[in-house]
Design a protein around this nucleic acid. Structure first.
Lengths: 232, 232
DNA sequence: ACTTTTGTATGTTTTATAACATAAGTGCAC
DNA sequence: GTGCACTTATGTTATAAAACATACAAAAGT
């Protein structure tokens, strides 16, 4: 847990990745961090901009997406608190190659780039943690490349729903996915048009695999959804 | 340059990523490395296997691919000497999530996992280099996810040809792509069926954008190919 | 309360691409 | 050299998904 204990906004940041830091190192990061809030729909960072630090999403949910060929967005990641966003460009030294938009009111904590790299160079354990973290992300990305290209619409949508379930969990009823997405976002996550996302969600609902009420989606028949996802 | 100067096989390994190592550290890696050769078509590693070390492709070319839903492969990376392969699983602690096959006779150099991690924990500069390297790979992977899903066949094939050109360069004539791939490999790289790869290559040839003689592909009109790739 | 905008839903048409079929060419084994 | 398997080539058909069209519902602004 990073010791941002003096910062009321970041007090709850639990980043096991920082477990390996000394008190002094944590202090340096703490001294050089800042907080910001974003309202639902606001841009946290944008494709082409230069990263100024490591952004940790302390509260709220965000979508990370790239603009595609015909202006069609592809969501490449759904972020939930607490996790890092925008770290790829920061580490590679590029400008952002994707954008982040708040899906609900968000609180972020930005650790200054210079300080982070100072700590990174002094503490190889942190660096190894980050390598491990990024290796997992790369695995997810490669996997998505295959499923998004090879699975059919139903398979892709089923996978997305499972993915949302895993990422955001459920409400108290244990079946309602705890995220509030437009059909367009669902489509952009699943590589399909909005029409087809609506259509296929309806199909799943009429098959009693899920139930829809507005943007709230309940998973009624998990096994079947998993099967649809696997079969592609 | 990693000081594998005593190893006749690895003498030519120039990995700037290891520049930051001390003589002692290089020595440790050297002592704990081994070499292997693979003939064209042989499997270097396979999806599901456990990584035993960091593999550096010292000579030859290889394709890295994942098996998709209907047994259809998706090539996620084309590797050329000198570069690392199979590092993702090594760093994440997983088993391999992709396979590597030699496209021509290959020589690899395997640095023992334990030794690598020892050096990695003692030298944060190496770790930072690896973080930077992986961040770039993640960017490429995300980018490919979007282009492979959103571009049309012609755009995807054009992009693949440009990608091969960039990765492997040309023969002495400056226009023949320096790699010898089956149409099936081209298809698996571009997310299309073999038929469509053949068809679209023929189309490009009849438009004088490329010329084909067997598996040798010449880029006749680079600008046009780039345009086809951009338009999608 | 009323219009305007935005999102959702669903039917119809069109199109890109896969699937299938077949033939010709190429390289390899014997 | 001859036969066999594999690759390349190309035409035809089938189909999944996009594009388009329209209607309705919900939210937002006036």
């Amino acid at each position: 847990m990073i010791s941002f204990i003096n910062c009321e906004n970041c007090a709850d940041i639990k980043m096991t990745i920082f477990d390996v830091l000394s008190a002094k190192e944590k202090e340096l990061l703490y001294k050089n961090h800042s907080c910001a809030t974003y309202r639902k729909g606001e841009i946290i960072y944008k494709e082409g901009e230069k990263p100024i630090g490591l952004i940790s999403l302390s509260e709220g949910k965000a979508k990370i997406f790239k603009e595609g060929v015909g202006g069609r967005d592809q969501i490449i990641r759904m972020a939930s608190s607490v996790s890092f966003i925008g770290y790829r460009a920061l580490f590679s030294g590029d400008n952002y190659t994707s954008s982040a938009v708040a899906l609900e009111d968000c609180m972020v904590c930005i650790i200054d780039k210079e300080s982070l790299f100072t700590v990174l160079e002094s503490n190889s354990k942190l660096a190894v943690n980050i390598i491990r973290f990024m290796a997992r992300e790369l695995g997810i990305s490669n996997s998505r490349t295959v499923t998004l290209t090879q699975k059919h619409i139903r398979g892709r949508l089923a996978e997305s729903l499972l993915f949302l379930l895993e990422t955001y969990g459920t409400e108290e009823d244990n079946i309602t996915i705890k995220v509030y997405l437009s059909r367009e976002d669902v489509a952009n996550l699943s590589n399909m048009t909005t029409s087809n996302a609506i259509r296929t969600l309806s199909a799943f609902a009429s098959e009693n695999v899920i139930s829809i009420s507005g943007r709230k989606i309940k998973i009624l028949y998990l096994k079947k959804l998993q099967k649809i996802s696997e079969l592609g």
